[in-house]
């Protein structure tokens, strides 16, 4: 177990160091996510009151679209120059690689969520009624998206037309996260009378299952 966590930490630090140096998240993914929020505003042609009521859903659609880019970037790091073969030959447990890569994606999504939260407050005039629920929902949903995305990224990387395949594979699977996180945010932002904590529980279960499944299945994905 200790070795698994040490190796996962090594992978996560490697991915985050590459991200810090290449700045793909800050220079490309984050502006894209903020742009999506702005375009939603244009498309809905609505006043702030309407945008406020739609803010939770728009927030999570923006997160999922940005997550696709983050996952594709994470997967491409291992495809470039066949580093994935090096990882297979290193003798590292595939579950370590999965956990490390998912952790790096999770941290990047957390940064994105902070920026997007500022975005909906500034652009849509949203107000946070329950900051604890908001933070826990954002963190739990990020775990679910990072774990599922990393697993499906590995699956798509072994198939043809991987760049276009990933969204088709991943987005339907993440539909429960979109629904649960949106409902929970409805409660946290005070836009609808729902029990956000119950939806947070659903997200937590999804996140746990995705992480466990990913840790178990990642080896088969990269081997085959």
């Amino acid at each position: 177990m200790r070795e698994l966590l040490i190796d996962a930490r090594l992978i996560a630090i490697k991915d985050l160091r590459i991200e810090a140096r290449s700045r793909v998240l800050l220079n490309q993914v984050a502006p894209f996510a903020l742009l999506v929020l702005v375009l939603f505003g244009f498309a809905l042609d609505a006043d702030q009151r309407t945008l406020r009521s739609f803010a939770p859903g728009l927030f999570w659609v923006a997160v999922l679209l940005a997550a696709l880019l983050a996952v594709q970037r994470s997967t491409s790091l291992e495809r470039a120059d066949d580093a994935q073969t090096g990882l297979r030959l290193s003798g590292m447990a595939p579950s370590s690689v999965f956990l490390g890569k998912a952790a790096a994606v999770f941290l990047q999504l957390a940064v994105l969520e902070v920026l997007l939260t500022i975005g909906i407050v500034v652009l849509y005039g949203s107000q946070v009624d329950d900051p604890v629920l908001l933070i826990l929902t954002a963190a739990t949903a990020a775990v679910a998206v990072a774990a599922t995305g990393t697993l499906y990224g590995a699956l798509a990387s072994g198939l043809g037309a991987r760049e276009t395949l990933l969204p088709i594979l991943l987005l339907p699977v993440l539909a429960p996260v979109l629904i649960g996180a949106t409902r929970s945010f409805d409660d946290a932002l005070g836009t609808a009378a729902v029990d956000g904590w119950a939806w947070l529980g659903l997200l937590a279960v999804f996140g746990l299952v995705a992480t466990a499944l990913g840790a178990l299945a990642h080896g088969a994905m990269i081997e085959n």
Partner: peptide, 21 residues
């Protein structure tokens, strides 16, 4: 293929693969 990460330095790559092993 060289199995190297383009955005890491040569030293960081060698160290990473040593620790990975």
């Amino acid at each position: 293929s060289t199995c190297l990460y383009g955005d890491l330095t040569a030293a960081e790559n060698i160290t990473f693969w040593a620790k990975a092993a």
